[in-house]
């Protein structure tokens, strides 16, 4: 009897090892995802229970809502400013130091340092540096910009913080890619008279393009999920000029307790990020993954 039982018990044990991971995946990923989908199609009361199924009504109202349109536009505005700045800076920096010379190790370290700083610390420091009256930025550049009170400028401070936080990782990824371009290719091109600009566009850029596209698509996804820096630095203001999708979702969910609307925004964020992650994986060739 005991012998007959043991093989199936053994089989069961294999599943037991997977059980904690599966339970967590169900409890904190799949279940909330399905519930968010259902909530976005229903009217939900204050305690988070569904009252009535209303189909796509929440989405129709959402896209008519001026507030949501602003969030959507701001989120893309962030991405459009953040990604080119980030990529241009990191690519430029990587091109400066990819060939090992004196001081390159030191410079590399400087570019990587932002990785060691958490978002909320960085946001606090930026808030002080950009302070209009006592901040260093306005003084050094002889400006009198109200960085956090002028809707024209507030988004730029969030973008600059985003770039600063992204530099460490993106610089390293591009540096790694540039260093893996075979040196003979570059040398033979230069022997044939190609300048450094031609070498870059004809040889380096095509060869690092998978990494470059990977960086761009993951940063696009990150942009869709922008929320924390806005919370610490600007609280979505002034005049909603830095209000992003995730920030509005937070406000609808936790300040206004409007779960249907919050869930509908979540679904929009899911849809946007989903395609961008798929896009990122297409360019992911070396087993690099984001969390």
């Amino acid at each position: 009897m005991k012998k007959a039982l043991s093989p199936s018990f053994k089989q069961l044990k294999n599943y037991l090892y997977l059980l904690p991971a599966l339970a967590l995946a169900y409890l904190f990923s799949y279940r909330p995802f399905v519930k968010t989908l259902l909530n976005s199609l229903s009217i939900v009361n204050f305690s988070g229970n569904i009252v009535e199924f209303v189909g796509l009504e929440n989405f129709i109202n959402l896209f008519k809502d001026r507030n949501f349109q602003i969030s959507l536009i701001n989120t893309f505005k962030f991405a459009v400013m953040f990604i080119p700045l980030d990529v241009a800076f990191c690519l430029f920096a990587a091109l400066l130091v990819y060939r090992k010379r004196r001081l390159t190790a030191f410079n590399e370290t400087l570019f990587m340092l932002p990785m060691a700083v958490a978002m909320s610390s960085a946001a606090l420091v930026f808030k002080a540096i950009f302070n209009p009256t006592i901040g260093v930025i306005n003084y050094v550049f002889r400006l009198s910009i109200q960085w956090f009170d002028d809707p024209k400028w507030a988004m730029l401070t969030v973008v600059l913080l985003g770039v600063w936080m992204a530099i460490g990782l993106d610089f390293l990824l591009l540096l790694g890619a540039l260093r893996s371009v075979p040196q003979q290719l570059i040398e033979s091109a230069q022997l044939e008279g190609a300048g450094s600009v031609a070498t870059f566009f004809k040889i380096q850029l095509p060869l690092i393009s998978p990494t470059l596209l990977f960086v761009i698509s993951t940063r696009l996804r990150d942009s869709m999920l922008l929320g924390g820096p806005v919370m610490v630095m600007t609280s979505g203001g002034p005049q909603r000029s830095t209000q992003t999708l995730v920030y509005q979702m937070y406000v609808e969910g936790f300040v206004a307790n409007n779960y249907s609307k919050g869930s509908a925004i979540s679904v929009v964020v899911f849809a946007l990020t989903f395609f961008l992650i798929l896009f990122a994986f297409r360019f992911e060739k070396r087993g690099v993954f984001y969390q």
Binding site: N14, Y15, L18, A21, L22, A25, L27, F28, S29, Y30, R31, P32, F33, K35, T36, N39, G48, R221, L225, G227, V246, M249, Y250, G253, F254, Y259, G262, S263, S266, V269, F270, T273, F274, I277, F289, Q291
Partner: peptide
């Protein structure tokens, strides 16, 4: 079902936690 279950766990990568905060908070 080994590979399938593994995939089910790994696929949670596609559901960014920051977009699930409302439901997870309620849970």
């Amino acid at each position: 079902g080994r590979n399938f279950l593994f995939f089910v766990i790994i696929a949670t990568m596609m559901l960014p936690g920051d977009a699930l905060i409302i439901e997870n908070y309620l849970t």
